[in-house]
Design a protein around this nucleic acid. Structure first.
Lengths: 242, 242
DNA sequence: CCACATTGGGTAGTGGCACTATCTATGTTA
DNA sequence: TAACATAGATAGTGCCACTACCCAATGTGG
């Protein structure tokens, strides 16, 4: 019924040392300890291992982000409400500067307290005087407005809100601000994409397995969507300058 | 006319040591050397510096990926054909395994030669015959078919092709294969997104500046698009289980 | 029953990366 | 001229994803 770690390694292509590392990091549940130096791993471990590899290698998540995502999925696996988008911060939620990319990075905090430049740019106009230190959230208001306008029901503290707000804010500070109207159009396209995403989630047997599938379709799909967009951009660009 | 490095640092919020590092790495063009220990930096340097910070900090690109993207933009800045999507691999194009995420990562290549597990999965049925050791590209055929079907005009060796193919292949190997039809629907949404992207590119004065703006709108926009999708997913999920 | 490769578990080491600190020989400026 | 800032070069830091080693306990074959 169970295989040993070396078999798991051979079947997945992942070195045993790395598997042990993932075990230690909690990305993989421990095998059934049949003895002090023997543990059994089953198909679910293999599946999980491949999933982990894909999240880390293909999507580029960090080990800690992967652990969080996996944990969140497990926690919500049983719920009728498959709020996957909610948990998939896919980005270390570190309060404060909100640094780093969806994958990893690291870097010790920003520079000083000033955080990411951003404001103070050309137009300026940002906090006139009291920047204070309690900056609530960059661009949060605009995001909230958008969500309200579209009538979306999303958690007040969904990480994606912050990511979106921060990005819009940065775009603005660099003089490439998006008009509210254009932003809404992007949001509508995102809405259609989400519909597609969820259509593909057929109710399967095992809830955990289904949750993992959903994870695949959402997180792992991200590089593919970005790639599609780049291809589409190239095509559109060619069309316009035909 | 020019400011010194400390001024650049103060205006951007980036420590001088880091600016020097970027200079060394070629992310920032050197200032006009007015003396052995004095160089002048102008507005373009400040703009570039902020752009770099955004690409690295918000989008999460690695320094080397940033350098490549910037270089590609500069190279194509003058061309009538703003093929930005083409150059924006946003992913180290390392032939072979195609590892790592859009940002960084690193990791020494995969494990052994076996590469990323992948095949051998459940269904299997991949390559009709050959396979051999000269694997041309995973999922390349499917991607080519899609592109042909949509009538897109994209370069034969656009990095995005490989990224897409690899992701689809991984999805397949994990048992979450996308039907060709669904994939096409995603592609159509990507097409609309691309139209929006390009609509926003107004012809500005300086070609380099315009190229940088385009970069902002394409690369920097990525986290925002993914965030929008996650929010939309949450909303859609809530709607369905209302 | 026993040599012996394998395992689980733990600890230390490696290489890459994005910075960051220091140092020196200038240069500027009060 | 003295205090102070630079450019440029080199070394160091902290984090991360692994990877190598070590050890005692096993299971396995002969």
């Amino acid at each position: 019924m169970g295989v040993r770690i070396s078999e798991l390694s051979r079947r997945s292509g992942v070195p045993t040392a790395t598997i042990k590392y993932y075990l230690r990091e909690g990305l993989l549940p421990p095998g059934r300890a049949v003895a002090a130096t023997q543990a059994d791993y089953d198909e679910s471990h293999l599946r999980r291992l491949r999933l982990v590899r894909a999240l880390i290698g293909v999507r580029g998540l960090s080990v800690s982000a992967t652990r969080e995502v996996l944990g969140a999925v497990a926690a919500h696996a049983g719920e009728r409400h498959q709020v996957l988008g909610l948990v998939l911060g896919a980005r270390p939620v570190d309060e404060g500067g909100g640094r780093q990319g969806g994958d990893r990075q690291g870097g010790s905090g920003q520079a000083g307290g000033e955080g990411q430049a951003g404001g103070e740019g050309p137009g300026g106009g940002e906090g006139p005087g009291g920047g204070e230190e309690q900056a609530p959230a960059p661009g949060a208001a605009e995001v909230a407005a958008l969500i309200g306008e579209l009538g979306w029901a999303v958690s007040e503290h969904a990480p994606a809100r912050a990511v979106l707000g921060e990005t819009l804010e940065t775009l603005r500070s660099l003089g490439a601000e998006l008009s509210h109207d254009v932003l809404r159009q992007y949001a509508e396209l995102a809405e259609r994409t989400a519909v597609l995403d969820l259509d593909e989630l057929d109710p399967r047997a095992d809830p955990l397995e289904q949750a993992e599938r959903a994870l695949l379709r959402t997180v792992l799909m991200e590089p593919a969507l970005l790639a599609l967009r780049r291809l589409a951009q190239e095509n559109e660009s060619a069309r316009r300058n035909a």
